[in-house]
Amino acid sequence: MKRITVAILVLLLILSGCKAKKQEASSGEAIGFELVGEPVEKGKNVYVVLKVLTNQYWQGVVAGLSEAAKDNKCNVYVGACVDEGDWQAQQKLLDEAMEKKADGIIVAPANSTLLSDKLKEIKDSGIPVVLVDTIMNDVSSFDTCYMTDNLSAGSKAAEEMMRLFEENGISKDEKAEIAIQITSTASQTVIDRMAGFNQYWSANAPENWKVLDDIGLNNGNKEKAQQLGLEFAENHKDLKGMFGCNNSSTVGFVKGLEESGRDDIMLVGFDYADETAALIKKDNKTATIVQNQKLMGYKGVERVLELLEGGKSDLKFTDTGAVPVNHSNYAEYEKELEG
């Protein structure tokens, strides 16, 4: 009996450890707040908590924050986590921001549910809360959100795919398959893009142009993403389109396609990685959907300042937009990036 009791206790400990491990997915480490630009005396202090800072996308958000800080003469402090999903580290940063008497807070939430209480606490204390990149499920926990409407962005991707099909001579009577690749089933961003793609495609594409039921799942692994791209290209002779729901999936498709040697497949993806750009420049068979993350950062700061001056939250959600970049407009886009 004693042995059984001990065994049960050990099992419970292990299970509670596992559950705790599941919730505390990451290290809890954060990159502390750094001022972007020059300090402004008597300027409003806006604290920004992002997911990470390590890639081109988030650098774009920071660029927008920085420009808005300069244009509006305020102080913008940016902090982020080491691990992208680390909502607990974000919670700590938010506490720090409140301790530092932030006038306004901008957040890119790593978890759309678990940060709700903290954000409500901040909002109830009179500090405006503006979201960028990701929305919270509880809309009462923030004032406004600036992000890409991923459902809409997915539809744009489908629209772009149809354009590529038509311009490359795929007839409506021809059998054509489209493969989709995603990073994770836990990312609502990616799911929304896939849903948007399917929504547009099912409503507008000819019956013979079918999305494959088998969705490629790469779990964030670059090699797997490439392998999936290759397998789709090699195993589906009627494959005419590939849709990557995010940057890594798109790059995976690009590399897989190159490895397969097939040049009859259209590709639409997300973001503007070097590999994707190279394919876009090559011919009119590739396009990508780019977000306006700089606008998210810029508008976020502007909105905080408006709210601090008594402005009302008329709109909860602003779509910062997503546009296709393809063979006909990539040069223009690259100029914009440089600017």
Partner: peptide
């Protein structure tokens, strides 16, 4: 669709 007014 997600509304700009409500966010829902």
């Amino acid at each position: 669709y997600r509304s700009a007014v409500t966010g829902l």
